[in-house]
């Protein structure tokens, strides 16, 4: 049975697109057929993070408007043959995404894929609502920082009110993905701890992605971090998170990069 997953956050710049690419690739590595769908019309970036920016011919809006078939718009990943990208339009008006059109495309995607991972635009407007509308499960991407936590709380409220599942009276499954986490700073009391964020947002934890150079390096070269640097701490955290999405029980650890700098040694930073 196929699952539609929305990666959302409210706030921009917290790692939705990075997480969509990393989780999508991780699920595909696990043998699933995966489509990652960019809903950020006008500001598409999933193509760039996936390294497919020069292969975009048709996009989500073309398919929604019936100007292209789904198969024509889907771009198959060059590294993983079960991973596909449905890009957003860079030029068209976001109002061209109709609610009925999106519903039809999502139904069609469900026929061919095990996982459909929707990369939501920031904000709480139409685009974000359309991205979450048909989801079976949501990943709320949050940084351990006050404005991100507040916006996540708002998005959680919308997931419980504005999705099809919520409107049917069903429980909307939501998971917290804490990104850019720095265990050493949290330990020193300079950053919200995992438990603080969990207590405030009260949704189950899917994973903790440590702050790491590997994430920027991966997007620089146009590859999900789970493929570009599979042994890095963030990639391991994303791979574990993907397994949890599939229902596996994986112990929650905060991975750290092996290389510990001088400052890390001085302040007793542990590789958990």
């Amino acid at each position: 049975m196929s699952q539609v997953l929305v990666v959302t956050s409210g706030k921009g710049g917290v790692g939705k697109t990075t997480s969509t690419a990393a989780l999508g690739a991780a699920l595909a590595l696990g043998g699933n057929r995966v489509a990652v769908v960019d809903f950020d019309v006008g500001l598409r970036n999933l193509d760039l993070v996936m390294g497919a920016e020069r292969r975009v011919v048709y996009d989500l809006i073309n398919v929604v408007q019936g100007e292209a078939k789904l198969q024509q718009a889907l771009i198959r990943d060059k590294r993983l043959e079960t991973l596909y990208l449905l890009p957003a339009s860079q030029t068209r008006d976001k109002d061209a995404l109709t609610s009925e059109g999106v519903a039809r495309v999502m139904e069609e995607l469900r026929d061919s894929f095990d996982w459909i991972v929707c990369d939501s635009p920031a904000g709480i407007e139409r685009g974000a609502l359309l991205a979450m509308r048909h989801a079976d499960v949501a990943v709320v991407v949050t940084n351990p920082e006050v404005s991100s936590v507040r916006d996540s709380d708002r998005i959680i409220g919308m997931l419980d009110a504005k999705t099809e599942k919520a409107e049917r009276g069903d429980y909307m499954e939501k998971h917290l993905l804490l990104t850019r986490y720095d265990a050493a700073r949290a330990e020193r009391g300079q950053m919200l701890k995992v438990d603080d964020v969990l207590e405030i947002l009260s949704i189950p934890l899917l994973g903790i992605i440590p702050e790491s150079d590997a994430v920027l390096n991966a997007s620089n070269v146009g590859s999900p971090v789970t493929l570009a640097a599979a042994e890095s701490a963030p990639a391991r955290a994303y791979l574990d998170a993907a397994r949890r999405l599939e229902g596996d029980v994986v112990p929650m650890i905060i991975p750290a990069d092996k290389r510990v700098g001088l400052m890390g040694k001085l302040f007793g930073r542990r590789a958990a």
Binding site: V146, R150, D153, R154, G157, G189, Q190, L192
Partner: peptide, 23 residues
């Protein structure tokens, strides 16, 4: 170093309690 995280947590808890009610 200044432990600012507890302040962040307390501010968020108070703010969100209010915002959830008004929503």
């Amino acid at each position: 170093p200044t432990r600012s995280a507890p302040v962040a947590r307390d501010r968020l808890q108070i703010l969100l309690q209010h915002e959830r009610v008004s929503a």
